[in-house]
């Protein structure tokens, strides 16, 4: 090796390379940096043995620790499920009123119910549970089948006009289509129905038609019957619309809503959660 060449201005040795009179100063890596580099190499070697590293033809080296990111993720999922089973057990053992009285169970039920509502109920009832024509608004205080916690739970479990043997089933004859009432009679009784909630004109004829045909289900004065799922006709809430045309159409050939049987599809804890969530939207009684 040639003798070290020292740069005059800086007093630092040069690498000996020269380009048109320009020389490069020899500024080696700092010692601490070099040592970090060596430590990294040692670390990497250790890493090869401890963690999964080398790809093989039919797999990969597993490492002494047997660590696997996939397994770690699965463990996390299992731990999450386990943490839910504990409170889930508490919920399945408790009555709806007990759940509602216990802040911890209530918190879980509301979160669980909200999530389940979004996944299962929102397509028909809307994300805000306000329903739409033909699909009941769950925010208000009008209930076809009852707005108590138990009634709501039952409705969710069995559905309406669905596969369950106990399913909610309200029937209304097609008065117009099947010729039970003439169009004139339907017109008259529709006026009478409107008058029950404060608009339209009540006639004796209309009242007579109503008494003969409607009172059996809708009750004296049209207040409805939750046992039969017969809507209250005296309030301001109209599932299929509150205009005269809508009422005439409904009497002529009724639309009848359908709701799936959720019992069996959703686990009991989720159904309880949903019942509490729907009840606490504000419309429960």
């Amino acid at each position: 090796m040639a003798q070290k060449k020292i740069d005059e201005i800086t007093g630092v040795a040069t690498t000996g390379h020269e380009w048109d009179g320009l020389e490069e100063l020899n500024t080696p890596l700092p010692r601490w940096w070099l040592w970090l580099f060596y430590i990294c190499i040692v670390w990497a070697i250790g890493y090869y043995f401890v963690y999964p590293s080398w790809p093989l033809i039919n797999g990969y080296t597993k490492g002494f620790l047997g660590y696997s990111q996939r397994q770690a993720a699965l463990d996390d999922v299992a731990a999450g499920a386990a943490s839910r089973t504990e409170i889930g057990k508490a919920l399945s053992a408790a009555s709806l009123d007990q759940i509602r009285a216990d802040p911890k169970m209530l918190e879980f039920a509301m979160a669980n119910g909200k999530s389940a509502f979004g996944n299962n109920c929102a397509p028909c009832h809307g994300s805000g549970a306000t329903g739409s024509p033909g699909y009941p608004n769950l925010q208000d205080d009008d209930w076809l089948w009852g707005g108590s916690l138990d009634a709501i739970q039952q409705t969710i479990t069995v559905g309406a006009r669905s596969v369950s043997a106990d399913t909610r089933q309200n029937v209304m004859p097609s008065f117009g289509k099947d010729g039970l009432l003439t169009p004139e009679q339907i017109n008259t009784v529709a006026d009478y129905v409107l008058s029950l909630s404060g608009s339209g004109t009540a006639t004796d004829e209309g009242k007579q038609i109503f008494t003969d045909n409607c009172v059996a289900c809708h009750g004296e004065g049209g207040v409805g019957n939750q046992e039969l799922g017969a809507p209250n006709l005296t309030d301001k809430i109209w599932l299929y619309g509150g205009t005269k045309e809508a009422i005439v159409a409904q009497i002529t050939e009724p639309k009848l809503g359908v709701m799936p049987t959720w019992g069996g599809k959703l686990d009991p804890v989720t159904i309880k959660s949903l019942a509490i969530y729907v009840h606490d939207l504000g419309g429960g009684t």
Partner: peptide, 18 residues
């Protein structure tokens, strides 16, 4: 204020906000 729904009509015609 609740975003959805902004208001609910109750059966007696009252208006409720959450």
């Amino acid at each position: 204020h609740d975003r959805n729904p902004l208001y609910v009509t109750l059966k007696d015609g009252g208006i409720r906000n959450g």
